[in-house]
Design a protein around this nucleic acid. Structure first.
Lengths: 212, 212
DNA sequence: TGACAATGTGACCACATGGTCGTATAATCA
DNA sequence: TGATTATACGACCATGTGGTCACATTGTCA
């Protein structure tokens, strides 16, 4: 956690630092990202920086937590209505909200993308600390739930499906980012919906030709 | 490409350097990986190193190409028998061969894993150069082929399926690496087969409960 | 106004990086 | 043997890193 001095800063200055750090950490991995660069971009002297944050790690964890909080907030409303939906619609919502989040907060999405590639164990575990694997267990819970409701076949391997959906989720995001990258956020919602539906249709109905 | 002097080296020394570099580049990203470290591990002086390689990039590309060649070799026999197989069996083979490769050449698999996370554009494009996206077009070709043969439903979105399979492929490898990581290569083939079959069964038959 | 504490600040530190270069050594050929 | 060329070698360089610290500036309260 940053020092008190940081929170006593005028909001402008504080946000400038946050913005600069977010930018730097979304461009480069933890070890490559440079404190000097962050200081330069935000126009604060090195000495001041170390009065606000104890460490590089301190800043990193702080920035990551901001992104995490933002994402949790963004998803919370969607998750609240989960119990009213079928599994298919739950996943649709999850996928589409994911793309929406990346569109609305590209810098946080980039931060997450970078984090998923992070090599530095210290940095990684400092961010994760506790409450990790949340999304894994969420998926498994959703699947088990749908099984008891008879929405999906009991023969389906829960772990395999959970893995498949997780990887699919991140792939959708990466794909959308690639295709409609930072330059053009003007893709329309219909495109996203169609693509997500194509993917989910495969998972739900399979690709084998029907023998009617 | 390395200098002539490198290839004139006694095989022992040459392999020592290759091993050390492989190790370093599989542990850390291009910019983090250290030439000093590689020199230390392989007991060659810095000056000698720069007589063998023009650059850090030179070494990096060389090492990556070794791994790529090894992988292509490993897969070529499997791909040769593709035309005798159904799409399902083609993918089974691909997935299982992938896991096998990682088991047989964990260091190369680790190199590939690291490369997929690489941030440095210069390093990335120097490795890719040409002939990229090979795997993407391979998948699409396989799918189109199966469609005309009537093996899979024409309603299935080709691009979406290709994307799904690609992401699934890398996920399987990552999962296996995680679960049976470098410590324990003693997982049996049956486990792998079952897991791969679970995944492919979902993709081919879907997860929806059958109404018999 | 004066005393004291909180902040601002940038020169500086030790260290590591990729890369160079002059020289020492070994190999080759006459 | 002596001359010439290829290779081995490591001290050295400029640059960048995360982090420190003595000192200047500002704010606060009496």
């Amino acid at each position: 956690m940053p020092q008190e001095t940081f929170f006593n800063l005028p909001a402008d200055k504080r946000n400038l630092i946050i913005t600069a750090a977010t930018q730097e950490f979304s461009k480069a991995s933890y070890n490559i990202a440079s404190i000097n660069q962050i200081c330069k971009t935000s126009n604060i002297p090195k000495g001041s920086f170390y009065q606000y944050f104890t460490d590089k790690l301190d800043l990193y964890v702080y920035i990551m937590n901001i992104a995490i909080e933002e994402k949790v907030n963004f998803f919370s409303s969607a998750i609240a209505e989960f119990h009213t939906l079928t599994l298919l619609d739950q996943f649709r919502l999850l996928f589409i909200k994911g793309v929406e989040f990346a569109k609305k907060h590209p810098q946080y999405a980039a931060l997450g993308e970078q984090f998923s590639k992070e090599n530095d164990e210290t940095a990684k575990s400092a961010v994760i600390k506790e409450g990790e694997k949340q999304s894994e267990s969420l998926f498994i819970q959703m699947i088990e739930n749908a099984k008891t409701k008879g929405e999906i076949d009991n023969m389906v391997d829960t772990l395999a499906l959970s893995l498949l959906l997780q990887s699919l989720n991140s792939t959708v995001n990466r794909y959308m980012l690639d295709k409609f990258g930072s330059a053009n956020y003007e893709y329309n919602q219909e495109d996203v919906n169609n693509f997500v539906d194509s993917l989910l249709s495969i998972v739900f109905h399979g690709i084998k030709k029907r023998v009617d």
